[in-house]
Design a binder for these strands. Structure first.
Lengths: 241, 241
DNA sequence: GCAAATCAGTACGGTAGCGTACAAAATCGC
DNA sequence: GCGATTTTGTACGCTACCGTACTGATTTGC
């Protein structure tokens, strides 16, 4: 494991794992644990949010839908976070879509159970507050990065972020999908990815990108990855392993 | 007033104005009301936040500082909002800078008074929760917009956002400053601004941009302005005037 | 095992925006 | 009012990325 690598255990979502025992038991009893297939839409824009999702493996993507049918990723949610953060703020719809990016196992809780839990006990509220702060930092850095950095660097950042959120070194992602996430042409992704492959930093076959040399990948990206990672570590100290 | 135009009264910050009388009196007693000069830095990255600021007139800008000394605006705070939103989440530092963009009058409250207020009473917490949700929507749309829209459109959006936050139609902004905010060259701003001026949509002399035809300006921008405005209006219903 | 579908490689002209530079115009300090 | 400073106008070659399109490679479905 690289020194800067933050990885989930694949056993439990971080927010849930950090709950004290009694709160954990209480919240877990409200959750359903389900497999989530790629491209499942878990939140539609401006539609009452049905569930909050806590990924254990796999990850979700928060996506802004543009009028011209364009789509741009705003942020990524993995084992460290939750979809439906609006619930924390007492809001039950959002203007962005949330879609499964990498299939995995997730716990989900209904809107009503979530609102009841948040209204009656403070443990989860405290953790979600920390997560909200991190989320704001993340997407703030995303605004800046999308404004000024090249596709090469943004691709590397995106691979690192996803690598942090899956188990293993294989990311089930097509160039087409990456293009949507980075808001660039599919062809641009192919060019950037080919460059990384030629440098033996990644390898890929159809729909599967393998991270070969994470250290070099970190060197190939912009500062934004490090910023984003640091904002997690400030607030979400990783349990020793 | 244009049909889509949301403007402050210049008398009070919206978050404070929406407080019930007793809470308003209590919070106001904790605030200091001060003039704020352009370019005053109110929050430094990773430094303990001293105050939360509630603009009454003028506005603040949240800016990401890049390692190469580049700067990119993440979002804008005016009469509808507050700097130091982290306090809501129990966090006392942030990774972005907050700087005065347009001089004005603001109320400020110390970290300790703010934390005490948030911990002991719920009225302000409720409003800040709504504002946090709006803020997240705003910067999410900013991620998308910076990713895909042209400088022309982004400039128009930025002028509209600022116009919504100042009293009158004169925005005291130089091209140089706008360039930082949009993360583009100063020369690019001049070209885009000149085009708007030729169309009689704006006028400017050194450091002062005047909005002449707001309706056309709205037509010249991308959907992102409308999205951002809508997210305010959903949560912050404007008092009738 | 073969057809259909998906995914990846590559190319080419077009253009938005960059870095840089320099000069003109407006404003400020005194 | 005059020099110094700030702000704006404009130009030029350059690069990254776009839109589009076509081909080839791999996987999937049956």
């Amino acid at each position: 494991m690289s020194h800067t690598h933050v990885r989930g255990t694949g056993q439990e979502n971080w927010l849930l794992a950090m709950l004290p025992d009694d709160a954990y038991a209480r919240v877990l009893a409200l959750c359903e644990t389900i497999p989530m297939a790629t491209k499942t839409i878990v939140i539609e824009p401006d539609v009452l949010i049905e569930y909050a999702h806590f990924p254990i493996t796999g990850c979700l993507s928060v996506v802004a839908l543009m009028k011209d049918r364009g789509r741009v990723e705003v942020g990524t949610v993995g084992w460290e976070g939750m979809s439906g953060l609006s619930f924390l703020h007492g809001v039950e719809t959002t203007r962005t879509q949330c879609i499964t990016q990498v299939a995995g196992t997730m716990r989900r809780i209904t809107r009503q159970d979530m609102m009841t839990e948040l209204g009656s006990h403070g443990e989860l509220v405290g953790l979600l507050n920390l997560y909200a702060d991190v989320w704001i930092s993340q997407i703030g850095q995303g605004v800046a990065c999308n404004g000024v950095h090249s596709i090469d660097k943004r691709l590397a950042r995106w691979l690192l972020i996803t690598h942090d959120r899956v188990i293993g070194d294989v990311l089930p992602l097509t160039h087409e999908f990456l293009a949507v996430m980075l808001a660039v042409r599919r062809a641009s992704v192919t060019v950037a990815a080919t460059a990384l492959q030629n440098r033996r930093i990644i390898d890929y076959t159809h729909g599967k990108i393998t991270v070969l040399d994470r250290e070099q990948l970190e060197k190939a990206t912009c500062e934004c990855y490090e910023m984003q990672r640091a904002s997690y570590e400030k607030l979400l100290p990783v349990t020793p392993d």
